[in-house]
């Protein structure tokens, strides 16, 4: 319940290192949750306005980039009376450790939420070492 009054603000992404974009529009940093599970890492990103066709997930070496394009629907002949959020694309970049099994990464989008499942590579999984009693 302490979150009822939590204030929110959409964070605009800093200019990406790769240079300027050709399309002039705002770019926001999506809020993410990252969970570590036994066999996988799960990244969940809030990207309202994005669907499976407009989201790109790329992995270059160990840099994971998520980018979502948002096409805003602006009601015709209406004036904007109250604006609490801006509309723009989403982008965020993460550096992965080597422990991720790149070939088995899965991505899904539902209701504007991107979910990435990054399975851990065999070598990184925790192994239980059996201990034998000494005779």
């Amino acid at each position: 319940m302490e979150d009822v009054k939590r204030e929110i603000e959409k964070k605009e992404a800093s200019t990406p290192g790769q240079g300027e974009r050709t399309r002039q529009r705002r770019v926001y940093t999506p809020d993410v949750d990252i969970m570590e599970k036994k066999d996988e890492m799960v990244v969940i990103a809030d990207m309202p306005g994005v669907d499976e066709k407009s989201v790109d997930v790329t992995l270059d070496k160990n840099v994971l980039t998520i980018h979502g394009r948002v096409d805003a629907e602006i009601p015709e002949n209406h004036k904007l009376l109250l604006s609490e959020y801006g509309i723009g694309d989403f982008q965020r970049t993460f550096t992965l450790s080597d422990e991720v099994d790149r070939d088995r990464i899965r991505a899904t989008v539902k209701n504007g939420v991107l979910k990435l499942v990054l399975p851990k590579a065999e070598a990184a999984k925790m192994r239980k070492i059996p201990i034998q009693a000494e005779a």
Partner: peptide, 12 residues
Amino acid sequence: TVEFPAVNLWAS
């Protein structure tokens, strides 16, 4: 800063 969720209001 606003309360979640942020809204936009358009009117004619």
